[in-house]
Design a protein around this nucleic acid. Structure first.
Lengths: 243, 243
DNA sequence: TCTCGTCCGATTGTCCGACAATCCTACGAT
DNA sequence: ATCGTAGGATTGTCGGACAATCGGACGAGA
C-alpha cells in the first residue's frame, strides 16, 4: 500500500454541459437576466442530444442559476435570490437534525451583533422599514400565522439595515426555521405577543438613536425572552425541526 | 381593478415528480443513504416517461438532495453537506457582487461571538483540533495556497467548537470566500504570516482557558489585522470577488 | 479460505425521432 | 390604441433503442 491513487471519475456528458454553462454564468459571459439559447441550439453547439442538454439545464435550475420568469417558459440566467438559497440551506439543516435549541442559540449569537451593526449603519429608509415591521407585528392581532411572519420580518429588516449581503443571506435560513417554531410557541403563549411588541419597540428606538450598545443588549433580551416562551409553551428544545 | 388574481401556473410533470420525491425525502420516507428505485421503476410508479424522471432527478441532484457515492452510479438520498451547500451560497454571493469589504465586515460581525461561544462550549477534542489548525498554519511555510487554506481551517475549527450546526453551515460560505482573498493578500504581505500566527496562538489560549471575553477580543483584533493586510497589499476593498 | 476471472442481469447515459401545447411576434381589423 | 389572429419557435413529453458499466453471483485456482 505504498501508493494511493485518486479516484478517476468519468463525468457524464450532462455534467460537462452543466459545468460549461455554469462557467459562462460565473464569468458573466452569460449575464443576469439574459436569455439562454434554445435547447436545440445548445445541443448543436455542444454536439450532444437535446435530452442531454435538458438534463444539464435541470441541474442548473436546481442550483438556482437558471430559472424562468413568472409564467414564461423561456429560460433566463438568474442569480439565486436570498429566499431560494435559504430554502436550500433550510432543507439541509432540517435533514441534519437541527433542534429548536440550535436555532435559538444561533439567534442568540448572531442577532445581537447584527442589531449592533444595524444601529451603526442604518439609513432613514432602513429605519422606516424596521418601524413598519414592528408596527405590523403590534397591529396584526389576527392569527398566529401572520404574527409569526411579522416577527421574522422584523429580524429581516434589521438584518437589511446592516447593508451586508452576506449577513442578509446568511441569516435568512435562520428566519425560515424560526417562523414555524414561533407559530407553535405563540399559539400556546398568547402573552408573548405583548412582550415581543415591547422588545421590538425598544430595539427600534435604540436603532433610531444609533445607540449601538443598547441595540445589542435589547436584542439579547428579546431573544432570551423567546426561550422563556418555549419553556412556558412546554416545547422541548431538544426536539428536532420538521420539514 | 377591484380584484387581483394570483398567477396560475401549470407545473410541468418533471417538477411535480421532483416535488413528490423531495417530499418523501424531507418526511424521511426515503431515508438518508437509502437507495432510490430505478428510473424505470420510478417512471412506472409516477406514470411518466423515463426522460421525465431523469429531469426531476437532475433537479434534485442540483439541490444536493440526491447524489451518488464515489464511483458508483446508483443514486442515493444524500443530505447536502456543508461544503456543497456553501458552494451554492458562495456562487450566489459572487453573482450578487459581493465585495472584499462585505466579506471582511461579515467576519468582523460573526467571528467574535463565535469565538466567544467556542470558548464557552469547547470540548477537549475541539481544542485539540483548533490547536492542530493553528500549528499547521505556523508550521507550513510552503506556499501561500496552503497557508490560506490553513488560515481558513482555523476559523472552521473554532466554528466547530460551538457545536451548532447552523453556525457551522452558515459561516462556511464566508470561509470559502475568504480563502482566495487571503491568498492574494498573503502573497503580497509576507509579514502578515507572523501576525496571524501570534493572533491564533492568543485565541487558542483564550479558548483553552475558557476565557470568553478574551477569546472575543482577540478574535476581533485578529480580523482587524486582516483589513490592515489588505490595505498594505493595496487591495481595493470595494472591488468585487470573482467566481 | 481467500482471491481472482468471468458471466449475466440491471441500471444508467445517450441518442433519435416525433408531436402536442404553448409561447412569442408580427400583422391586421375594429 | 386595443384586440384578435396566424405562423414560427420552443418547450414538455413520449416511445423506443443501444452501448457502457455496475453489482452480484458463481466457480477456479493458490
Amino acid at each position: 500500500m505504498a501508493v494511493e491513487f485518486e479516484a478517476i471519475r468519468a463525468e457524464p456528458a450532462y455534467r460537462k454541459v452543466a459545468e460549461a454553462l455554469m462557467e459562462r454564468i460565473l464569468d458573466r459571459t452569460l449575464r443576469y437576466g439574459e436569455r439562454l439559447p434554445s435547447e436545440t441550439e445548445l445541443a448543436r453547439q455542444f454536439g450532444v442530444n437535446r435530452s442531454t442538454v435538458r438534463e444539464a439545464v435541470r441541474e442548473l435550475q436546481g442550483n438556482g442559476l437558471l430559472g424562468r420568469r413568472r409564467g414564461s417558459k423561456l429560460l433566463v440566467v438568474t442569480r439565486p435570490e436570498a429566499d431560494h438559497v435559504a430554502e436550500g440551506v433550510g432543507r439541509a439543516l432540517v435533514l441534519h437534525d437541527v433542534t429548536y435549541r440550535d436555532v435559538w442559540e444561533a439567534l442568540m449569537i448572531l442577532e445581537p451583533p447584527i442589531a449592533e451593526a444595524a444601529a451603526r449603519r442604518r439609513t432613514d429608509a432602513d429605519l422606516a422599514l424596521i418601524a413598519a415591521a414592528a408596527a405590523n407585528f403590534a397591529a396584526k392581532n389576527e392569527g398566529t400565522e401572520s404574527a409569526a411572519f411579522h416577527a421574522a420580518e422584523f429580524f429581516r429588516t434589521v438584518g437589511a439595515a446592516t447593508h451586508n449581503r452576506i449577513l442578509m443571506l446568511g441569516h435568512e435560513p435562520l428566519l425560515q426555521l424560526l417562523e414555524p417554531s414561533l407559530r407553535a410557541m405563540m399559539g400556546k403563549v398568547p402573552q408573548s405577543r405583548a412582550r415581543i411588541t415591547t422588545a421590538e419597540k425598544r430595539i427600534l428606538e435604540a436603532i433610531r438613536s444609533k445607540d449601538v450598545e443598547s441595540a445589542r443588549s435589547w436584542m439579547t433580551r428579546h431573544i432570551r425572552d423567546y426561550s422563556k416562551g418555549y419553556e412556558i409553551a412546554g416545547i422541548d428544545l431538544q426536539s428536532r425541526l420538521e420539514g
